[in-house]
Simulated scan of single mutants.
Amino acid sequence: MSLNEVHISSLVVHVSPEHLNDIKPQIEAFENAEIYGDSPEGKIIVVLETKNQGFITDTIDAINNLPNVLSTVLVYHQIETEVDEDESDSKNTGIEYSQTEGEA
């Protein structure tokens, strides 16, 4: 039996408004990162879907270190866990668990 996790996180990235169109393609270049919206004030909503939490923190650090990024904040993190039964078992009775973490 093994655990398969999917981490779904959302971030708010605040950039200098005049650099919004320069930063967006740089964020989209990150694996598993998708932009869901932005505002003229320079705020970008980013959603990450990953298999481990380490990728989330690494991505936040990398985005925060991009030129003209003022801040990157994790606002939502959910962990979806599915238990896979032994491969030799003919019936798959996987159980799904969900855990949501509050605002960071």
Rank of each mutant, 00 (worst) to 15 (best):
T81A: 07
P67C: 08
E28M: 06
E18I: 15
T57N: 12
Q78Y: 06
N52L: 05
I23Y: 10
K51W: 04
Q53V: 02
H77N: 07
E103M: 11
N92K: 06
M1I: 12
I45L: 12
K43V: 05
V73M: 11
Q78E: 09
T93K: 07
P25K: 08
E82H: 09
N52I: 03
V13L: 08
F30K: 01
E85R: 07
L11M: 14
V6R: 07
G42D: 15
H19G: 02
S16E: 15
D61M: 09
G94T: 04
D38I: 12
M1L: 12
I45V: 15
E34R: 15
P25L: 07
Q78T: 08
S16W: 13
I79L: 04
I45T: 13
I79W: 02
S10F: 08
Q53H: 00
M1Q: 09
P25G: 10
I56T: 08
I35K: 09
S39R: 15
I63G: 04
L11F: 04
E49T: 15
E85W: 02
K51N: 13
V73T: 13
V12I: 14
H19D: 10
I95V: 13
T59C: 01
L48T: 14
K43E: 15
Y76I: 03
D86R: 10
V47C: 13
I8W: 12
Q26G: 11
H14F: 10
Q78I: 09
S9H: 09
S2A: 08
S39M: 15
A33Y: 03
V73Y: 02
T57I: 08
V13C: 11
S90M: 06
V15A: 08
G42R: 13
E5Y: 01
I23A: 08
M1P: 14
E87K: 10
E85M: 06
I8G: 12
K43Q: 14
N52E: 05
A33R: 04
N64P: 01
I45H: 05
E34I: 13
H19Y: 09
Q53K: 04
I56R: 06
I8T: 13
P25E: 02
T50K: 10
T81N: 05
T50E: 09
T72F: 03
S9D: 06
P40M: 12
K91D: 08
E87I: 12
V12Q: 12
V13S: 10
T59D: 03
E82P: 06
N92M: 02
I35G: 06
P40K: 12
D58Y: 09
V13D: 08
L66K: 06
D89W: 06
I23C: 05
V69D: 00
I44K: 12
N21Y: 02
T81W: 00
S71I: 01
V69H: 00
P40F: 14
A33N: 02
I63Y: 00
E80T: 10
I27K: 03
I79C: 06
D58A: 14
G54T: 02
E28T: 01
H14M: 10
G54C: 00
V69E: 00
H7E: 05
I27V: 15
E31Q: 11
V47T: 13
I60H: 05
V75C: 05
K51L: 13
N65K: 02
G102N: 07
N92Y: 01
N65D: 02
S90P: 10
E80N: 06
T72P: 01
E96W: 00
A29Y: 06
Y97L: 04
D38H: 15
